[in-house]
C-alpha cells in the first residue's frame, strides 16, 4: 500500500483538519492567542508547526492546553487577521531567529563564536564544535544550536550577502 492508498482509505476525521471558514484566531489582550472554532471560543491557544524544519508554513497544530483543537493545513486560506495572529504565535513560540548577516565566525581552541545579525536583532552564539551543533537541512539551510538550547537558523546560505558567505565558507 502506498501513501495515496493510506490517504484514501483512512478516516479523514483522524487528521482533524480545521475548516478555514469556521476558524478565527486573534491575539488576546495578555499577549496570548485566542481562537474561535465554529461557535466555540478557546483562550489561550497555542500554535505549533508539525514540520518546523521541512514544511514550516503548513500543517499547524492548534491546541488549547492539552487538547488538540485541530490541524490547519494551509494558513493562507484563513482571514488576514488570523494569519497575522498565527504568525505572531509561531514567532513567539519558536525563538529561533533567522540570520540575515554573518558578521564573523571565529575559531579558538575548543570553541566557535558566531556573531550574527538576525531578524530579531544581533546575537552571539558560542558552540564547542560544529559537528554536534551545526545541522544542515537540505541544501543551504542550517541550524546552529548551543548546548543550552539557544539557536539561530540560516534559511538559505546562498542568498546571504558576500561577506556572510565568505564567513560561512570557513566552516562549510
Amino acid at each position: 500500500m502506498d501513501g495515496a492508498d493510506i490517504g484514501s482509505e483512512a478516516d479523514p476525521s483522524l487528521l482533524n483538519l480545521l475548516e478555514p471558514s469556521s476558524l478565527r484566531v486573534r491575539v488576546g489582550p495578555g499577549g496570548l492567542l485566542q481562537a474561535w472554532v465554529g461557535e466555540l471560543s478557546y483562550r489561550p491557544v497555542e500554535v505549533q508547526q508539525a514540520f518546523p524544519r521541512s514544511d514550516p508554513g503548513r500543517f499547524l497544530v492548534l491546541s488549547h492546553g492539552e487538547v488538540e483543537l485541530g490541524l490547519i493545513e494551509d494558513v493562507s486560506c484563513l482571514d488576514a487577521e488570523s494569519v497575522r495572529a498565527l504568525e505572531y504565535g509561531l514567532r513567539v513560540h519558536y525563538l529561533i531567529p533567522r540570520v540575515t548577516r554573518i558578521q564573523r565566525i571565529r575559531q579558538e581552541p575548543g570553541r566557535w563564536t558566531w556573531d550574527v545579525i538576525t531578524d530579531r536583532g544581533p546575537m552571539q552564539l558560542t558552540v564547542q564544535n560544529l559537528h554536534d551543533h551545526l545541522e544542515t537541512i537540505g541544501s543551504g539551510r542550517m541550524l546552529l544550536t548551543t548546548e543550552d538550547g539557544r539557536g539561530c537558523e540560516i534559511v538559505a546560505a546562498g542568498s546571504l550577502d558576500r561577506h556572510s558567505r565568505r564567513q560561512l565558507a570557513k566552516v562549510w
Binding site: 496570548l32 529561533i96 539557544r150
Partner: peptide, 26 residues
C-alpha cells in the same frame, strides 16, 4: 516553555504574558 526559550505568564482574572526569555535563563 517555548522552542529555544520560554515566557512567564501571570494570571489575574486573565492570563498575561509578563516576560519572555531564551533558554539559558529558564
Amino acid at each position: 516553555t517555548d522552542r529555544g526559550g520560554g515566557h512567564l505568564v501571570l494570571s489575574h482574572g486573565q492570563d498575561e504574558v509578563f516576560a519572555r526569555f531564551t533558554a539559558p535563563l529558564t
